[in-house]
């Protein structure tokens, strides 16, 4: 197994190095998940932007494979001082309790002390399967973890890892007996990604390679600390101009002012959008955010945060709301200085 340089000894200094880390992650995921390059890119953007992803698609479309591929792209490190695992998976069911994911305090009869047993949430990459099948109680327990990167059990807060990254899935059709996520909770997810069925060529490729020995093991892995350092560096180095920020505000205004929405997008979504845009610019080889990034990310960023009037298509709505601000942004580049 190829090892990477020790992230602690030589901290990242250039964007090219961050880009290389992302490329390593991407290559490994692409190897395991065929025909999903667009989703892989968005997952990577979300990972580097410190956001969480909600995947919506049909059973058997490769959600778990995707999440596992990401988890396995990290170097297996011994559980650190905080005891954070690399990858965990939780299947949400109606009878799940909050303590089933956060962990419980148990009484150790040998030492006569209460000790905290960590739940599955103490992981760098957490796959939450069928998030809408569990009760709101459990959903909101996850909420604190996602927002604060900590869990509180018996009034004691426990830090989660810096990398804490949630990939939740839900089935768009089979909604009987589910607890649909409220808008406030959806707003915690950076992206909601809708996965279409992969194209026939890729599907055939999946069948051919299934069960064969995986050469992916040869591909370089990534240290969790590298991603955390990369996050910080790209946030500092990738330039977001005044005009692009203005464009985001314009889009938000357009989404709020239309009669087609009952509720527009939150300010939090704009705040979260900035690192996402920076990451995409980085992945595209740029050190500045451009209108292309705004256009590409607007739909996964905003569509799931809107409460629509009946009969309104979110796709068309976001497309329409983009037009004016993007045009204004483009105009600004040849306007007076």
């Amino acid at each position: 197994m190829m090892t990477t340089k020790d992230p602690m000894s030589a901290p990242l200094s250039t964007l090219d190095e961050v880009r290389a880390i992302a490329a390593r992650l991407r290559d490994r995921m692409r190897y395991d998940v065929i025909g999903r390059d667009d989703i892989i890119e968005l997952v990577l953007i979300s990972l580097f932007a410190d956001g969480h992803v909600l995947l919506e698609d049909y059973p058997g479309s490769g959600k778990t494979t995707l999440a596992k591929a990401l988890g396995h792209a990290f170097v297996e490190e011994p559980e650190d001082a905080h005891g954070i695992a690399t990858f965990r998976r939780v299947q949400f069911t109606p009878d799940l309790l909050p303590s089933d994911i956060t962990g419980v305090t148990i009484f150790d009869t040998t030492t006569n002390v209460f000790t905290f047993r960590r739940g599955p949430v103490f992981a760098s990459v957490l796959l939450v399967d069928e998030i809408n099948r569990t009760s709101p109680k459990v959903q909101s327990a996850l909420l604190e973890a996602m927002a604060e990167k900590q869990v509180t059990v018996d009034n004691v807060s426990h830090r989660l890892g810096d990398l804490f990254f949630v990939m939740a899935t839900q089935n768009p059709l089979d909604s009987v007996g589910t607890y649909p996520l409220p808008l406030a909770q959806l707003d915690r997810f950076l992206f909601k990604l809708t996965m279409k069925h992969i194209d026939p060529v890729s599907e055939l490729q999946v069948l051919k390679t299934w069960g064969h020995p995986r050469v992916a093991m040869e591909l370089p892995k990534v240290h969790r600390a590298e991603v955390v350092a990369g996050r910080a560096l790209l946030r500092e180095k990738v330039f977001v101009s005044q005009e692009v920020q203005q464009c985001l505000v314009d889009i938000a205004t357009a989404l709020r002012d239309t009669k087609r929405t009952r509720q527009g997008v939150s300010t939090r979504s704009l705040v979260q959008a900035i690192p996402a845009l920076q990451t995409r610019a980085l992945l595209k080889g740029r050190d500045y955010v451009s209108s292309d990034d705004v256009e590409a990310l607007a739909f996964p960023l905003f569509a799931h945060r809107l409460e629509l009037m009946p009969g309104v298509n979110a796709d068309a709505l976001v497309r329409d709301a983009l037009r004016g601000p993007v045009d204004k942004l483009a105009r600004s580049t040849i306007g007076v200085e």
Binding site: S290, S291, D292, V294, E295, L322, R323, G324, V326, D327, L329, A330, T333, I334
Partner: peptide, 23 residues
């Protein structure tokens, strides 16, 4: 850049409304 855009507009290839520069 504007001069180049003008040359494109002259032959009927301006940027369309809502189209980004990249597109």
């Amino acid at each position: 850049y504007r001069a180049v855009l003008d040359a494109l507009s002259d032959v009927g290839q301006p940027r369309r409304y809502g189209e980004s520069r990249e597109h």
